[in-house]
Write a protein that binds this DNA or RNA. Sequence first.
DNA 1: CTATTAACGGAAGAATCTTCCATGGCCGAT
DNA 2: ATCGGCCATGGAAGATTCTTCCGTTAATAG
Lengths: 154, 154
Amino acid sequence: MADELDRTDLKILRLLQANGRLSNADLAAAAAVSPATCHRRTQRLFEEGYLTGVRALVAPHKVDRGTLVMVGVVLDRSTPESFGAFEAAAAKLKFVLDCHLVAGDFDYFLKIRVGDMADFNRIHGQQLIALPGVRQTRTFFVMKEVVDNAPLEF
Amino acid sequence: MADELDRTDLKILRLLQANGRLSNADLAAAAAVSPATCHRRTQRLFEEGYLTGVRALVAPHKVDRGTLVMVGVVLDRSTPESFGAFEAAAAKLKFVLDCHLVAGDFDYFLKIRVGDMADFNRIHGQQLIALPGVRQTRTFFVMKEVVDNAPLEF
DNA sequence: CTATTAACGGAAGAATCTTCCATGGCCGAT
DNA sequence: ATCGGCCATGGAAGATTCTTCCGTTAATAG
């Protein structure tokens, strides 16, 4: 791990990951430093790329994205152009949460959020199998989200 | 979609998802309402569960979690006790980001972050195959993260 | 032992938050 | 059409917080 982080930095990272709305005053108290120091540390963590942003978490089922689907994708050919075209097209799809090039039986794994199964079936037929170079897809409907997007532990 | 959300609510949700550190003043300006109204709306979105939290995003490679792995898991038996035991144990593993019960060739899909491949091999041998009821696992190393944890679009 | 550097916390003006209150719009009932 | 009840809104203001400046302290090297 980057050893330019002391105990205070790690504490700030963990506290802000758990609660990105912590005020600088509260954060300082929890990290046992003065508000001035805490402010400098936090600013540095952003500037140097340890923290890449802060995001409010929207409840998927409240905005009609309650259905999660994992999709394995196999491409026709394994050329750089083929991969590039697929990635560019997949990254533009707004329902795609993850798109990862993997080693194994599939070329890509997608994690997708949609409203319901009917929604997914339409998307699958019209957008997924239409992605450039797709030979076949395998769909894994998520029946229970045991852990979803857990915070990073370090 | 829950239709108790008007245009202003949706704007606040999207703005806070993109930038959870927006001050109430800036948020109000961007949503074209007064700070007082913006504050009330935001508070309501939290209280009624549309927003479930705010989280700072830590750069994985900066904290020695630069390697992403997807793992498909098949259990021995398909009994409720078996599933329950597996889920309880998997949820406690700190390197597990996602754990989903799926329909298809696997029982569960895991998304895991570790330091490197050696790290994963140790974890796989000591912790994953040791999870209760595991018959077999299939590992998909992520070679390229095209899209990871994209914000929800709605 | 001294000089240099870097990080710290106190302090204070500026900005923001949070709540109260009066106003205005909308809808149903008369 | 008019009235009354009901919300939601925005202005205002005290309390809180942010952000920066500055003097001090601790650590390191010469």
